[in-house]
């Protein structure tokens, strides 16, 4: 499942590709919105683990502009609901993720990304 929470954890791991390899850029995506149970504690707990800038950019690429450029000081319900929607309810079903550094294409099919590398790309 390529939710944006998953996307926020993925970096290119091709041989020698160690800088500028995150976040992967979306291309030709088909998205689906699926409702998920709202859990504010989970969101608050996970916030420290997120690469915020990458999340905001990824959401914009998918047409969602609800997140502020910086994490607000006050985590009110409106903010947490936007975060919940962006992180957990937007599913990228088809398309690809492309490494900004080496241009490797990670294809997404049926909601599952293929992160396996070809032989000449592993260390």
């Amino acid at each position: 499942m390529v939710r944006l929470i998953t996307h926020n954890l993925l970096a290119c791991h091709a041989k020698g590709c160690t800088s500028n390899n995150f976040p992967l850029q979306f291309k030709d995506v088909a998205i689906e919105i699926r409702e998920a149970e709202f859990n504010p504690d989970f969101l608050r707990g996970f916030l420290a683990r997120l690469e915020w800038g990458a999340l905001v950019d990824a959401a914009r690429q998918l047409g969602d502009t609800s997140l502020p450029p910086e994490v607000p000081d006050m985590l009110d319900d409106d903010f947490l609901k936007s975060l919940h929607h962006v992180l957990l309810e937007i599913h990228v079903e088809e398309g690809a993720m492309i490494c900004p550094n080496c241009q490797h294409v990670y294809a997404i099919s049926n909601g599952i990304p293929n992160m396996l590398l070809a032989e000449h790309e592993i260390g």
Binding site: S109, L116, L117, A118, E119, H120
Partner: peptide, 28 residues
């Protein structure tokens, strides 16, 4: 894990065999 049981005699610098575009690549 990804890789070959026995290394190729010539290191692969690009995909060894071309494959049809509609087939997802399954590495060894």
């Amino acid at each position: 894990r990804l890789g070959r049981k026995k290394p190729l005699s010539v290191p692969a610098s690009r995909p060894v065999q071309p494959r049809p575009d509609d087939q997802p690549y399954v590495p060894p």
